[in-house]
């Protein structure tokens, strides 16, 4: 009897330990499949209709639309997207490294680059803040009038 009891115990033990892990694995796999699927379908749509919009952005809008219809963020998608977004700097590292190997830029290019990124960013930041401040104030004023 003993040799038979052992596998049965084993199965019982497996049943206890594996299902939650399997379920977790299923979440991860389905989340990864959903994100990869949206990226691929987005690329197809972009290519098929020769849209100027990048395929991955079409995929993002597809997923957003899907989740708005679903009425929430499925657990698997939340898990995988959280991981991807935390690793974002790793994903664009190869492109960023190329910055050290740029050769054919002249002094005017570099000056324009610095002006645009420092002065340009500060200017558009200021204008955005002033615009929103103005709009919020007039929205609040109208709200108080009613």
């Amino acid at each position: 009897m003993r040799p038979r009891a052992r596998p049965r115990q084993l199965v019982a033990a497996l049943k206890q330990t594996i299902p939650p892990q399997l379920r977790e694995l299923a979440h991860w796999l389905s989340g990864a499949a959903a994100l990869a699927g949206c990226a691929v379908v987005g690329r197809w749509i972009s290519a098929l209709l020769s849209l100027p919009i990048p395929g991955s952005v079409v995929g993002m809008l597809l997923l957003l639309l899907g989740m708005m219809l679903y009425g929430g963020v499925p657990r698997g998608i939340a898990l995988v997207s959280d991981l991807l977004l935390r690793l974002l700097a790793l994903l664009f590292l190869p492109a960023a490294v190329g910055f050290y190997f740029l050769r054919d830029l002249n002094a005017g290019d570099w000056l324009g680059l610095l002006a645009a990124t420092i002065l340009g960013t500060l200017l558009s930041l200021t204008l955005c803040a002033l615009l929103l401040k103005k709009l919020l104030e007039s929205a609040d004023a109208r709200h108080n009038d009613e």
Partner: peptide, 14 residues
Amino acid sequence: LYALLGPAVVALAV
């Protein structure tokens, strides 16, 4: 890593 950039853009939907 380049291949994962597409899914990362999709992940911004969350």
